[in-house]
Write a protein that binds this DNA or RNA. Structure first.
Lengths: 225, 225
DNA sequence: TGTACATCAGTGAACGCGCGTTCACTGATGTAC
DNA sequence: TGTACATCAGTGAACGCGCGTTCACTGATGTAC
């Protein structure tokens, strides 16, 4: 197109800024690769020449950080919505975890630049940590988890992050079971494991025999109800 | 240096191949960034001109894959060594997990190109999955874990991978506790959680109240021994 | 109400850079006669 | 034993590419007189 872009009024300088962010997101979705996120491509997508980007973002890194914050904002919103569906903090935590992993799998490129890249998404990752810590604090309040919420949140976060990132990076793997099962397995193990682990004195894992017997007993009681 | 490299004999064409791999590893360690891994840098490091690399690797991707396999070989060896120190399969699993995460933190760049990059380390990741599945099968044999070893291995792998990658990517985070504690927490929760979860019928996480009471009882029994 | 002016969002062209890759070549080596 | 030759690991120069970034500029807009 040869038509020159209609220049924005001095007041609404933030207009193109938003369009650039939207263009960046579209690019990520369509190409499926973070390498496609170049200033040239973003500018072209927004119907603008490349140097215009510099009116709104200091450099490429600044644009990338803005994209990360936008992605996080959406994930944050979805988790909050899912958590509102229940009053039990532990159930809410499970819902959040499910939404987290599903969001990551539905937006693999965005998740990668958000959580698997050093630097760019630092702010978003910090926000995520704080959000999860608050959610864990609710669980500690009801007594289902014991201990420092930040420490517990880190454990849970690492579990769901591991599930998400493993499935994303090796998405073409011949996984032994369907994705939903993998996700549920990981979340249940993390939830129950963290809950139980938070009650035990800190020590190494027990050996097979003793743990097996105890777990059998416990599982019977939990199942028999 | 202006001296021309002494040309290898027709027989040992694999010599430079090994030197190139070693040079690549050195580069990763010294620069701490995978972006430093360019054909030019690798060749220069090996004391050779850039096009020489093409005598030994089809292209950059092939070199990268070879680097991945080499990194995996070392991690594999360390895990085997750690597992040999004990006869109990579940304890061995815990040792493997600890070594895995420590290795990742000690070799952050290598771990990133091995497990957090699509394509290049596919073979290595597949080998890792198989290795862990075998180790889990031993745990199933003693009865400490129940179910499909491949499925259980995936759960455990995702937990340790999450711990490792989270700590690597956000290494400058102000974590609430020291790294060793984070690692131990994650591994214990994953181990106990997977063991217990493998005994329960598949369903969502229980609610706070009921689970809390059951866990309290169980923890008392496990601790009181 | 009409005109001159300052503002500043967006332009067009160009920069230097490092990259992966190619190509015809060189010259020490092992081998055949 | 000496010589001509084929082999092929490594060379040197160059290619085209896409990138982030710069710079002087343009021209529609709101404003002051």
């Amino acid at each position: 197109v040869n038509t020159r872009r209609v220049r924005a009024n001095p007041g609404d300088g933030a207009k193109l800024s938003g369009e650039l962010l939207a263009a960046a997101q579209d690019l990520l979705v369509e190409t499926g690769s973070e390498h496609a996120l170049t200033l040239r491509a973003v500018a072209q997508r927004a119907g603008v020449t490349t140097p215009s980007v510099y009116r709104h973002f200091a450099d490429k890194e600044a644009l990338l950080e803005a994209v990360c914050l936008q992605v996080w904002a959406e994930l944050d919103q979805r988790m909050r919505h899912a958590a509102e569906q229940t009053t039990d903090p532990f159930t809410a935590m499970g819902r959040r975890a499910t939404i987290y992993v599903r969001f990551a799998l539905d937006h693999p490129v965005q998740y990668r630049i958000l959580m698997m890249r050093p630097g760019a998404g630092e702010k978003a990752a910090l926000a995520c940590q704080e959000y999860l810590t608050d959610a864990v604090a609710d669980c500690v309040a009801t007594g289902v988890l014991h201990g420092d919420p930040r420490r517990l949140a880190l454990s849970l976060w690492s579990a769901v992050h591991g599930c998400a990132s493993l499935l994303i990076v090796h998405s073409s793997f011949p996984w032994p079971v369907d994705l939903d099962t993998v996700i549920d397995d990981a979340i249940r193990a993390a939830g129950i494991g963290t809950a139980l682990s938070s009650r035990l004195p800190r020590r190494r894992l027990p050996a097979s025999a003793e743990l097996a017997a105890e777990l059998d007993t416990f599982a019977e009681r939990l199942t028999g109800r």
